[in-house]
Design a protein around this nucleic acid. Structure first.
Ligand SMILES: NC(=O)c1ccc[n+]([C@@H]2O[C@H](COP(=O)([O-])OP(=O)(O)OC[C@H]3O[C@@H](n4cnc5c(N)ncnc54)[C@H](O)[C@@H]3O)[C@@H](O)[C@H]2O)c1
Ligand SMILES: NC(=O)c1ccc[n+]([C@@H]2O[C@H](COP(=O)([O-])OP(=O)(O)OC[C@H]3O[C@@H](n4cnc5c(N)ncnc54)[C@H](O)[C@@H]3O)[C@@H](O)[C@H]2O)c1
Lengths: 208, 208
DNA sequence: TGGTTTTTGTGATTTTTTTCACAAAACACC
DNA sequence: GGTGTTTTGTGAAAAAAATCACAAAAACCA
């Protein structure tokens, strides 16, 4: 099966859009609606679905409920997703405080930092010293982690996690990590996103 | 000129990598080093440069200093980049507190919220009521904004900004905004990034 | 100086991704 | 039950992106 990251990304976006449609009372959608919701082409939508054997009703579109269920199964959305945060700074805290993760069964179970001032074992999400990171990962069978430490610490933190059994990482630092084959890393580079907007704003200006 | 978003993104990544190389004392790089730093192919690097008329020295690679200067010019990096934040919650605050933006001349000039409890005119980055948003944008000729409000408010906030003259937006809400042709929007969807990692972790597991 | 090596710059090629286009299914209405 | 309309599902086509491959320039070396 040809499942690219782009395709998976879109599937999750469909799901997000479906959630909002359901919330606002809809029962069914056409590929066209979904395409519009995520800014794509309607045959893209249908192709994405067909790749995963998801099918609708000719002339009747897709039942929202049904469709979400199929996506959820595909994504193992019904299984709790435990995750840890390393680096309890601006970004780390923002994530730890985000309430809507619960809705998607994303559970930030613990956080780690190198700074003793941040330790707090009693908090809702405990903040633990880095020394305990590897044990925690192995003991609790944690598979996913978020890296929110400064760039100079990112690779080193990654290596620790990876050695302890982490299989997937969301990396907020601006460095691109050297990773083994069997660990999946997704980068979120906020400054890059701002830079790119800046570039295109200038480019658009010049065109006029 | 064929300048896609992918290409621009890589150029900024090269720059980021160059910055770190310079910091650690390097003087010159080869296309190979840059490729490795961002996880790409070396002819990709050269092609990106050639698209913008950036050239190195046969057999000698690229002078880091020189190269950064060329990228900076290309990106108007020497011009101060004023930006505002709308939505002073977890994410909004994280951005407002991030110190390294200054290094890149990204200046968060003001923030806006709908909640009176958040207003603070005296703060380093003042938090102002939404009523003042449009005036602020036009008076201060702000071109870029960050949207960090809940999803149900995002489109409405966008429409306000856009009407007042905003030309580029980084959107942290999970909805894809309906935008006019001449406004550039970049989406940062943190939950999506986590979801995708989760998907691939599961997929890798199953393969074994 | 002339041969050898290294690395760039770019056209050609390949691969990947998106879009088109249309047959087939499902329904609606008469 | 037949006719017309809508929307799916998917091969075929087009467009976009990445990679290859190699000539040419520069440096090095003997
Ligand atoms: N905050 C933002 O808006 C923003 C924007 C763009 C990029 N980033 C990137 O996101 C990352 C986090 O940013 P932030 O603003 O939250 O940083 P921060 O400085 O607020 O927090 C970093 C935290 O990491 C901890 N830390 C440092 N070294 C560590 C180590 N070796 N092991 C464990 N913990 C360690 C620090 O004690 C601190 O608590 C950085 O890489 C930054 O470049 C942040
Ligand atoms: N915090 C995270 O880690 C995280 C993760 C994924 C996605 N997000 C998304 O990022 C966005 C911001 O998240 P957050 O955690 O910072 O939210 P938050 O609830 O902490 O803050 C939202 C802020 O927006 C303000 N607001 C609400 N309606 C407004 C309006 N109409 N005009 C102006 N301000 C308004 C609120 O007063 C509040 O201060 C949300 O769309 C959220 O879905 C956040």
């Amino acid at each position: 099966m040809k499942t690219t990251k782009n395709c998976i990304t879109r599937l999750y976006q469909y799901r997000e859009a479906l959630y909002r449609m359901k919330t606002s009372g809809c029962q069914k959608v056409f590929s066209n609606d979904l395409a519009e919701a995520i800014g794509a082409n309607s045959s893209q939508v249908r192709k994405d679905f067909s790749l995963f054997g998801i099918s609708g009703n000719k002339r009747g579109g897709y039942g929202i409920h049904e469709l979400m269920d199929q996506l959820d199964t595909l994504f193992n959305k019904n299984q709790m997703r435990k995750i840890i945060v390393v680096g309890v700074g601006n970004i780390g805290r923002a994530l730890m405080n985000y309430e809507s993760f619960a809705r998607e069964l994303i559970l930030i179970e613990a956080a780690f930092d190198i700074d003793p001032m941040k330790y707090d074992r009693e908090a809702l999400i405990p903040v633990l010293p880095m020394e305990e990171l590897q044990d925690y990962i192995t003991h609790n069978k944690i598979k996913m982690a978020i890296i929110a430490v400064p760039y100079f610490a990112a690779q080193q933190v990654f290596d620790l996690m990876s050695a302890a059994g982490i299989r997937g990482v969301v990396n907020f630092s601006p460095v691109s990590l050297k990773t083994p084959e069997d660990v999946f890393v997704n980068n979120v580079n906020v400054q890059l996103e701002i830079d790119i907007v800046h570039y295109f704003v200038n480019a658009l200006d010049k065109k006029e």
